[in-house]
Every structure is written in structure tokens, then in C-alpha cells.
Nucleic acid binder design. Sequence first.
DNA 1: AGGTAAACGGGAGAGATGTCCCGTTAGTGG
DNA 2: CCACTAACGGGACATCTCTCCCGTTTACCT
Lengths: 209, 209
Amino acid sequence: MEQVSRVAGTVRPGGRTARVRAAVLQATQDELVEHGFQGLTMDQVAVRAGVGKTTVYRRWGSPAGLVTDLMTELADQSSPRADTGSIDGDLRANALAVHAALTDGRLGVTFEAMIAAATCDAQAANALRAFCRRRLEEWAGAVELAVKRKELPAGTDAVELVRAVSAPLFYRLVVTRESVTAEDAERSAVRALIAARAGAFAPGCPVAP
Amino acid sequence: MEQVSRVAGTVRPGGRTARVRAAVLQATQDELVEHGFQGLTMDQVAVRAGVGKTTVYRRWGSPAGLVTDLMTELADQSSPRADTGSIDGDLRANALAVHAALTDGRLGVTFEAMIAAATCDAQAANALRAFCRRRLEEWAGAVELAVKRKELPAGTDAVELVRAVSAPLFYRLVVTRESVTAEDAERSAVRALIAARAGAFAPGCPVAP
DNA sequence: AGGTAAACGGGAGAGATGTCCCGTTAGTGG
DNA sequence: CCACTAACGGGACATCTCTCCCGTTTACCT
């Protein structure tokens, strides 16, 4: 309740405070690229950002806090969903966007770190869930349009379908740690689409025999 | 090459060494249940196991090492795949088995810890990949039988299909941290099966337009 | 049984990690 | 432009993590 007013950086967010935040987030990402999440130390980030160690502890508290803030920053920059005119194109675009986010350079490293942070910190887990939820719902719009265009059965569960596109990509990245190609991503989109056309995401789909 | 002979516990694996290992793994699992992976400390495990702290460091090296060893222990105990006679039943059984492993009490906590360990330790990541690979290949046998029975199209990629069954479950557990019900698990199996029947896992499936 | 050395256990100590205090800097509102 | 105080920075200090040394226990071989 009173919590927010006690967090440093909320009363005077301009000027120095903003510069410190930018420097720290930049340093965090650099450190992630070089040492990964497990090698991310508050001390090193402070040194790299040219900022007092106390400040980093006070405002972010832990490596997970740093990554979480970095993620919210990147979330604001993420591009809107594509609209190719066909559900096939849209789902492929989604799969490729997820693939790019998970594997491309600095962004990919940050995502991996975010997932690692989520496994050991509740706040990070919430931030990751919220982020995924937002992306999922945005892309679900493409599915709903496709249903209106009669490309997909009426009642198709949009969020579940979009989820089915990215789930195999995350699975490979997190669980089996195989490298994921753009082709893998497209395959995932195509498979989800085939299932959707066959009514797998529509009501009346047999769950219990 | 000479590495193995330098690892403590390999030359005299009987008697005390075995007792120590059992006590440490037991303590590790207890600690995981109570504090999770991030709260797993070598010191506390040593105390709980009634074992010298030096011993835990010497033989396991890190929390990730503890969890990895615990996982290999559990892997040996994991039950073989089901054979219900139909691919529908087999895939459902697989989904339910995965669901049970991920959510049931002590075992579920251990799995979650293993995933956390894999995000920050290469050895743990390898162990997890190897484990998943083995389970995947075992259940792939059910798919191959189904292809022989003409339940599924010829050339269906067995491993990919089994992967598609469990991917959404892992996705929810790791990424979005939603609770996963047995019904969710069955739905996942049914959807993968629908896609497979439609040829989504068989050659000739359109990947590039 | 008895000898040998693998493996264990305790404790000291180096090093990293996180906290606290308090003086200094610089946004912000008047 | 000035006063007020949020936010920062440096450094001392407590704490935890991990390693090392060396004496003790005990599994394994003959």
C-alpha cells in the first residue's frame, strides 16, 4: 500500500535517477551477454555502470530484479503483431518472431536470463507470465480474424492456438536446449494450424473418451 | 580421461560411501521440498544429512550437482511406457505420466529444481536433456506401433509427435507458471494426435509455402 | 584378520556477498 | 535562484559461501 512510495526512484524519476537506471540496465545486459544469468553479480553491474553498489542493491535488490526490470524495458519496445491477411502467414510470422526473440543476440540472451530468473524468483516469474500473456493475447487477435474469415472453425480457442505455436520452441530452448532453427519455428506454426483446421482447438473436440 | 578415477566415491562405492550418498540425496530432496532450488545450500544439506560439509562439496560441488545426481537416481526408477493398444490411449497415458511427474509432490519439486539447475549449469542441462531424450525415445515406440497398425500416416515423425504432447505442459510449468490439470494434459495429447492424423508430422507436410 | 589408502569430518581462513551509516549531490517545487 | 530532501556514493562491517589442511575412520584386497 505504502510500498510504492518507499521504492527509490519513484519520487524523482527524472535526471540523475533516469541516467542511473539506463546505465545499470545497459550494464546488466552487457554482463548477461558475457557471463549469463548465473554470472550476473550486483557488484560487477555496479562497477560496469559506474554507479555505487549501494544504489544497485537499493533499487533492484537482486540479479533477478535487474533482469525483471530489463525485461519490462524491452517489453515496451517489442513490435506489434503482423497482419499478413492469412492465418497461415500470421502464425508463421508469430513463430518467427518468437524464434528471433529467443535466439537473436542480446535479446535472446536476455530472454534466457529471464527464464532462469523466473525459476528462482517469484517477482521475475510474475513479470515473465505477464509479458507472455500480453504477447499471447495480442497475437490471438489474428486467430479471431481468421475465424471471422472462415479460415478456422468457429469457437477456436485463440489463445490456446497461439500458445501451441510457441510451446515447442520454448520446450527446446529450456528443456532440451537444442538449437532451434527458423525452419523448426515454421514447422511448429504449420502443425498448430493443421490441428486447428481439424478442429483441435474448437469446442466439441473429444477430450475424454 | 583420468577424470573419473579422481572423483570421490568411485573407487570404494560400497558401505559408508553409499550410505553417505543416500543420506545426502534424501536431504537434498527434503530441502528442495521446503525451500526450492534457490534455497538449496550445500551447508544445510550437509547438516541435514548428518554429513561433513567438506564431503558434500567434494563429491557434488554445487547445488546443481546435487540435483543432477538426484535426477539420475530418479531416472532409474521411472516407469516404462504404457501400451494401451491404441495410439489415443498411449498418448493420453504419456501426457498424464508427464503431468504426474511435473506436479506430484516430491517428484514434481525435483523436476522443477532440475529445470532451474539446467538454466544455470551446463552439467545439469546435459543430464536433463539426456533424461528427456530417453523418455521421448521410449514413448516414440508407441507411435511407431501405431504407424504399423495404420492408425497414423506412414513416415510420421515419432519423436516429434511425442514432443508435441509434452511441450505445452512444460511451457505452462516453466514459462507461464500456470497450474496444469490432468485435463490440460489430455487435451494436449488429443491435439497432437489430431495434428498427426492430419499428416502434420509426416513428410510432405508443407513447411515453406 | 590386518594393512593400505579411499573417503570422511572438523575447523581455520580467504573471499565473495549483502547491509548499514552517513556525508554529498542534484532533482523538484516555490 | 533557493531551499528541501530524494537519491546517490563510499566505505566499514556482518554474513555467508567455499576451499584447504590434516587427522580419523573404514571399505576393500590379500
